[in-house]
Protein backbone atom coordinates (compact mmCIF):
# COMPACT_ATOMS: atom_id res chain seq x y z
CA UNK A 1 0.00 0.00 0.00
CA UNK A 2 2.72 2.38 1.13
CA UNK A 3 4.93 1.62 -1.90
CA UNK A 4 2.02 1.86 -4.28
CA UNK A 5 1.18 5.25 -2.91
CA UNK A 6 4.75 6.46 -3.11
CA UNK A 7 5.13 5.27 -6.67
CA UNK A 8 1.92 6.99 -7.56
CA UNK A 9 2.94 10.25 -5.92
CA UNK A 10 6.57 10.30 -7.00
CA UNK A 11 6.43 12.66 -9.97
CA UNK A 12 4.40 15.04 -7.87
CA UNK A 13 6.86 14.88 -4.98
CA UNK A 14 9.77 15.50 -7.30
CA UNK A 15 8.26 18.52 -8.91
CA UNK A 16 7.27 19.95 -5.56
CA UNK A 17 10.80 19.31 -4.30
CA UNK A 18 12.31 21.11 -7.29
CA UNK A 19 9.85 23.97 -6.85
CA UNK A 20 11.03 24.43 -3.28
CA UNK A 21 14.64 24.47 -4.42
CA UNK A 22 13.84 26.97 -7.15
CA UNK A 23 12.18 29.18 -4.55
CA UNK A 24 15.40 29.02 -2.47
CA UNK A 25 13.62 27.18 0.31
CA UNK A 26 16.02 24.99 2.33
CA UNK A 27 15.61 21.25 2.43
CA UNK A 28 15.84 19.76 5.90
CA UNK A 29 16.82 16.17 6.80
CA UNK A 30 13.35 14.76 7.37
CA UNK A 31 11.86 16.34 4.26
CA UNK A 32 11.17 14.17 1.28
CA UNK A 33 14.06 14.25 -1.19
CA UNK A 34 14.98 12.29 -4.30
CA UNK A 35 17.27 9.39 -3.53
CA UNK A 36 19.84 10.77 -5.96
CA UNK A 37 19.88 14.11 -4.11
CA UNK A 38 20.56 12.31 -0.86
CA UNK A 39 23.33 10.24 -2.45
CA UNK A 40 24.93 13.25 -4.08
CA UNK A 41 24.96 15.09 -0.78
CA UNK A 42 26.37 12.15 1.14
CA UNK A 43 29.12 11.77 -1.45
CA UNK A 44 29.98 15.46 -1.54
CA UNK A 45 29.70 16.25 2.17
CA UNK A 46 31.59 13.16 3.27
CA UNK A 47 34.30 13.79 0.69
CA UNK A 48 34.57 17.27 2.09
CA UNK A 49 34.71 15.98 5.69
CA UNK A 50 37.39 13.43 4.78
CA UNK A 51 39.40 16.20 3.11
CA UNK A 52 39.38 18.25 6.28
CA UNK A 53 40.56 15.33 8.35
CA UNK A 54 43.21 14.03 5.93
CA UNK A 55 44.19 17.65 5.39
CA UNK A 56 45.34 17.81 9.00
CA UNK A 57 48.23 15.48 8.19
CA UNK A 58 50.45 17.45 5.79
CA UNK A 59 50.28 20.47 8.08
CA UNK A 60 50.48 18.38 11.24
CA UNK A 61 53.92 17.41 9.94
CA UNK A 62 55.20 20.85 10.82
CA UNK A 63 53.63 21.39 14.25
CA UNK A 64 56.74 20.17 16.02
CA UNK A 65 59.03 22.11 13.65
CA UNK A 66 57.28 25.48 13.44
CA UNK A 67 60.00 28.14 13.67
CA UNK A 68 58.53 30.30 16.45
CA UNK A 69 56.16 29.81 19.35
CA UNK A 70 53.63 32.13 17.77
CA UNK A 71 53.68 30.19 14.49
CA UNK A 72 53.39 26.93 16.40
CA UNK A 73 50.28 28.12 18.23
CA UNK A 74 48.69 29.49 15.07
CA UNK A 75 49.39 26.31 13.13
CA UNK A 76 47.97 24.09 15.86
CA UNK A 77 44.86 26.24 16.15
CA UNK A 78 44.39 26.09 12.39
CA UNK A 79 44.73 22.32 12.22
CA UNK A 80 42.38 22.02 15.16
CA UNK A 81 39.85 24.07 13.23
CA UNK A 82 40.16 21.55 10.43
CA UNK A 83 39.31 18.72 12.81
CA UNK A 84 36.32 20.82 13.84
CA UNK A 85 35.31 21.37 10.24
CA UNK A 86 35.55 17.67 9.55
CA UNK A 87 33.31 17.15 12.50
CA UNK A 88 30.69 19.73 11.48
CA UNK A 89 30.56 18.09 8.08
CA UNK A 90 30.33 14.53 9.37
CA UNK A 91 27.47 15.74 11.56
CA UNK A 92 25.71 17.31 8.57
CA UNK A 93 26.18 14.07 6.67
CA UNK A 94 24.79 11.99 9.51
CA UNK A 95 21.48 13.84 9.28
CA UNK A 96 21.07 12.06 5.93
CA UNK A 97 20.86 8.71 7.66
CA UNK A 98 24.42 7.47 7.38
CA UNK A 99 26.69 6.97 10.38
CA UNK A 100 30.16 8.40 10.82
CA UNK A 101 31.46 4.85 11.19
CA UNK A 102 30.14 3.98 7.76
CA UNK A 103 31.68 7.10 6.28
CA UNK A 104 35.04 6.42 7.88
CA UNK A 105 34.95 2.83 6.67
CA UNK A 106 34.44 4.09 3.16
CA UNK A 107 37.41 6.42 3.49
CA UNK A 108 39.61 3.69 4.89
CA UNK A 109 38.63 1.14 2.28
CA UNK A 110 39.48 3.63 -0.45
CA UNK A 111 35.90 3.80 -1.68
CA UNK A 112 35.42 7.42 -0.67
CA UNK A 113 37.71 10.12 -1.96
CA UNK A 114 39.21 13.18 -0.36
CA UNK A 115 40.76 16.23 -1.95
CA UNK A 116 43.81 15.13 -3.91
CA UNK A 117 45.81 18.16 -2.84
CA UNK A 118 46.58 16.47 0.46
CA UNK A 119 48.49 13.76 -1.33
CA UNK A 120 51.31 16.21 -1.93
CA UNK A 121 54.13 16.46 0.60
CA UNK A 122 55.00 19.43 2.82
CA UNK A 123 58.75 19.70 2.28
CA UNK A 124 59.74 23.05 3.68
CA UNK A 125 58.26 25.57 6.10
CA UNK A 126 56.99 27.76 3.27
CA UNK A 127 54.67 24.89 2.34
CA UNK A 128 52.69 25.76 5.45
CA UNK A 129 52.38 29.30 4.15
CA UNK A 130 51.46 28.10 0.67
CA UNK A 131 48.81 25.73 2.00
CA UNK A 132 47.14 28.50 3.96
CA UNK A 133 47.35 30.99 1.13
CA UNK A 134 46.59 28.78 -1.87
CA UNK A 135 44.89 25.63 -0.62
CA UNK A 136 42.71 27.39 1.93
CA UNK A 137 42.23 30.21 -0.54
CA UNK A 138 40.92 27.80 -3.15
CA UNK A 139 38.84 26.02 -0.54
CA UNK A 140 37.21 29.27 0.57
CA UNK A 141 36.44 30.14 -3.04
CA UNK A 142 34.65 26.80 -3.30
CA UNK A 143 32.99 27.02 0.05
CA UNK A 144 31.47 30.47 0.11
CA UNK A 145 28.82 29.54 -2.47
CA UNK A 146 28.17 26.36 -0.48
CA UNK A 147 26.91 28.48 2.42
CA UNK A 148 23.82 28.86 0.24
CA UNK A 149 23.53 25.16 -0.60
CA UNK A 150 19.96 23.94 -0.67
CA UNK A 151 20.44 21.37 2.08
CA UNK A 152 20.03 23.11 5.46
CA UNK A 153 22.55 21.20 7.59
CA UNK A 154 25.23 21.49 4.86
CA UNK A 155 24.63 25.18 4.43
CA UNK A 156 24.76 25.79 8.19
CA UNK A 157 27.97 23.78 8.53
CA UNK A 158 29.55 25.73 5.69
CA UNK A 159 28.62 29.07 7.24
CA UNK A 160 30.43 28.04 10.39
CA UNK A 161 33.41 26.72 8.42
CA UNK A 162 33.75 29.86 6.32
CA UNK A 163 33.56 32.10 9.35
CA UNK A 164 36.38 30.21 11.00
CA UNK A 165 38.51 29.83 7.93
CA UNK A 166 38.92 33.50 7.28
CA UNK A 167 42.04 33.50 9.44
CA UNK A 168 43.53 30.45 7.74
CA UNK A 169 44.27 32.08 4.46
CA UNK A 170 45.55 35.25 6.10
CA UNK A 171 48.02 33.42 8.32
CA UNK A 172 49.31 31.52 5.28
CA UNK A 173 49.83 34.64 3.24
CA UNK A 174 51.51 36.30 6.19
CA UNK A 175 54.02 33.45 6.35
CA UNK A 176 54.75 33.90 2.63
CA UNK A 177 55.05 37.64 3.07
CA UNK A 178 57.52 37.28 5.94
CA UNK A 179 59.62 34.80 3.97
CA UNK A 180 59.61 36.93 0.86
CA UNK A 181 60.99 39.82 2.88
CA UNK A 182 63.60 37.58 4.47
CA UNK A 183 66.92 36.05 3.48
CA UNK A 184 67.80 34.61 0.08
CA UNK A 185 67.12 31.11 1.40
CA UNK A 186 63.74 32.13 2.77
CA UNK A 187 62.72 33.69 -0.54
CA UNK A 188 63.80 30.52 -2.28
CA UNK A 189 61.66 28.47 0.12
CA UNK A 190 58.64 30.63 -0.65
CA UNK A 191 59.16 30.40 -4.41
CA UNK A 192 59.74 26.65 -4.23
CA UNK A 193 56.51 26.21 -2.29
CA UNK A 194 54.55 28.31 -4.78
CA UNK A 195 56.04 26.31 -7.66
CA UNK A 196 54.89 23.04 -6.17
CA UNK A 197 51.46 24.11 -4.87
CA UNK A 198 50.25 26.32 -7.70
CA UNK A 199 48.98 23.72 -10.15
CA UNK A 200 47.59 21.33 -7.53
CA UNK A 201 45.66 24.30 -6.10
CA UNK A 202 44.10 25.01 -9.48
CA UNK A 203 43.17 21.34 -9.72
CA UNK A 204 41.26 21.64 -6.46
CA UNK A 205 38.33 23.15 -8.37
CA UNK A 206 37.84 19.83 -10.09
CA UNK A 207 37.84 18.83 -13.72
CA UNK A 208 36.99 21.26 -16.44
CA UNK A 209 33.24 21.86 -16.86
CA UNK A 210 32.91 19.67 -19.94
CA UNK A 211 34.50 16.73 -18.05
CA UNK A 212 32.66 17.16 -14.79
CA UNK A 213 30.07 14.42 -14.53
CA UNK A 214 27.98 15.65 -11.61
CA UNK A 215 27.96 19.38 -12.27
CA UNK A 216 24.71 20.00 -14.14
CA UNK A 217 22.46 18.10 -11.75
CA UNK A 218 24.16 19.66 -8.71
CA UNK A 219 23.56 23.11 -10.14
CA UNK A 220 19.92 22.33 -10.71
CA UNK A 221 19.59 21.19 -7.11
CA UNK A 222 21.45 24.28 -5.96
CA UNK A 223 24.08 22.24 -4.18
CA UNK A 224 26.52 23.92 -6.50
CA UNK A 225 26.18 27.52 -7.60
CA UNK A 226 29.10 28.11 -9.93
CA UNK A 227 30.95 25.90 -12.36
CA UNK A 228 34.43 24.56 -11.64
CA UNK A 229 35.99 26.70 -14.36
CA UNK A 230 34.27 29.87 -13.17
CA UNK A 231 35.57 29.44 -9.64
CA UNK A 232 39.03 28.50 -10.89
CA UNK A 233 39.20 31.66 -12.97
CA UNK A 234 38.18 33.76 -10.00
CA UNK A 235 40.88 32.16 -7.92
CA UNK A 236 43.56 32.87 -10.51
CA UNK A 237 42.42 36.47 -10.88
CA UNK A 238 42.51 36.97 -7.15
CA UNK A 239 45.78 35.18 -6.45
CA UNK A 240 48.13 36.39 -9.20
CA UNK A 241 48.26 39.99 -7.92
CA UNK A 242 48.84 38.66 -4.40
CA UNK A 243 51.87 36.73 -5.64
CA UNK A 244 53.19 39.78 -7.46
CA UNK A 245 52.77 41.90 -4.37
CA UNK A 246 55.25 39.76 -2.45
CA UNK A 247 57.60 39.32 -5.39
CA UNK A 248 56.86 35.69 -6.18
CA UNK A 249 56.50 34.31 -9.69
CA UNK A 250 53.55 32.14 -10.57
CA UNK A 251 55.00 29.10 -12.37
CA UNK A 252 53.04 29.49 -15.60
CA UNK A 253 54.71 30.91 -18.72
CA UNK A 254 51.39 31.38 -20.42
CA UNK A 255 49.90 33.44 -17.64
CA UNK A 256 48.85 36.79 -19.09
CA UNK A 257 46.33 39.51 -18.33
CA UNK A 258 43.56 39.56 -20.90
CA UNK A 259 42.25 43.10 -21.05
CA UNK A 260 39.22 42.13 -23.06
CA UNK A 261 38.03 39.48 -20.60
CA UNK A 262 39.29 41.51 -17.61
CA UNK A 263 40.81 38.22 -16.45
CA UNK A 264 44.03 36.25 -16.61
CA UNK A 265 44.60 33.69 -19.35
CA UNK A 266 46.53 30.78 -17.97
CA UNK A 267 48.24 27.64 -19.20
CA UNK A 268 46.94 24.12 -19.56
CA UNK A 269 46.43 22.35 -16.22
CA UNK A 270 48.36 19.06 -16.09
CA UNK A 271 45.27 16.86 -15.91
CA UNK A 272 47.28 13.68 -16.38
CA UNK A 273 48.94 14.38 -13.08
CA UNK A 274 45.57 15.17 -11.53
CA UNK A 275 44.04 11.83 -12.53
CA UNK A 276 47.17 10.02 -11.51
CA UNK A 277 46.97 11.43 -8.02
CA UNK A 278 43.21 10.84 -7.82
CA UNK A 279 43.82 7.25 -8.78
CA UNK A 280 46.21 6.69 -5.94
CA UNK A 281 49.60 7.50 -7.44
CA UNK A 282 50.35 10.80 -5.75
CA UNK A 283 53.48 11.14 -3.66
CA UNK A 284 51.66 10.63 -0.36
CA UNK A 285 48.39 8.78 -1.07
CA UNK A 286 49.48 5.62 0.71
CA UNK A 287 51.01 7.41 3.66
CA UNK A 288 48.01 9.66 4.26
CA UNK A 289 45.51 6.85 4.22
CA UNK A 290 47.73 4.58 6.30
CA UNK A 291 48.08 7.33 8.92
CA UNK A 292 44.31 7.70 9.17
CA UNK A 293 43.73 3.95 9.30
CA UNK A 294 46.39 3.52 11.99
CA UNK A 295 45.02 6.33 14.13
CA UNK A 296 41.57 4.78 13.90
CA UNK A 297 42.73 1.25 14.63
CA UNK A 298 44.99 2.27 17.47
CA UNK A 299 42.14 4.28 18.97
CA UNK A 300 39.74 1.34 18.95
CA UNK A 301 40.49 0.17 22.48
CA UNK A 302 40.06 3.73 23.74
CA UNK A 303 36.66 4.12 22.14
CA UNK A 304 35.60 0.71 23.43
CA UNK A 305 36.78 1.50 26.95
CA UNK A 306 34.80 4.73 27.07
CA UNK A 307 31.74 2.93 25.76
CA UNK A 308 32.07 0.11 28.29
CA UNK A 309 32.52 2.62 31.09
CA UNK A 310 29.45 4.59 30.01
CA UNK A 311 27.38 1.39 30.05
CA UNK A 312 28.60 0.46 33.52
CA UNK A 313 27.80 3.93 34.78
CA UNK A 314 24.30 3.80 33.34
CA UNK A 315 23.72 0.42 34.98
CA UNK A 316 24.96 1.76 38.30
CA UNK A 317 22.59 4.71 38.09
CA UNK A 318 19.76 2.34 37.19
CA UNK A 319 20.30 -0.02 40.09
CA UNK A 320 20.68 2.91 42.46
CA UNK A 321 17.33 4.24 41.29
CA UNK A 322 15.71 0.83 41.73
CA UNK A 323 17.05 0.32 45.24
CA UNK A 324 15.72 3.71 46.33
Amino acid sequence: METLLTAFQLPDLESRFQARIDAEDKIEPKDWMPEEYRKTLIRQISQHAHSEVVGMLPEGNWVTRAPSLKRKAVLLAKIQDEAGHGLYLYSACETLGVSRDQLIDELHSGKAKYSSIFNYPTLNWADIGAIGWLVDGAAIMNQIPLCRASFGPYSRAMIRVCKEESFHQRQGYEIMLTLSKGSKEQKAMAQDALNRWWWPSLMMFGPSDQDSKHSAQSMKWKIKRFSNDELRQRFVDMTVPQAELIGLKVPDDQLKWNEERRSYDFGEIPWDEFWNVVNGNGPCNKKRLADRVNAHNEGKWVREAAEAFAKKQAQRTDSKLKSN
Binding site: V53, G60, V63, G299, R303
Partner: peptide, 10 residues
Protein backbone atom coordinates in the same frame (compact mmCIF):
# COMPACT_ATOMS: atom_id res chain seq x y z
CA UNK B 1 51.29 18.35 19.23
CA UNK B 2 52.54 15.01 17.92
CA UNK B 3 49.01 13.68 18.43
CA UNK B 4 47.59 16.23 16.03
CA UNK B 5 45.74 14.26 13.35
CA UNK B 6 46.36 10.92 15.05
CA UNK B 7 43.96 10.91 18.01
CA UNK B 8 41.68 7.96 18.84
CA UNK B 9 38.61 9.91 17.78
CA UNK B 10 38.24 13.32 16.17
Amino acid sequence: GEWCGHGPVL
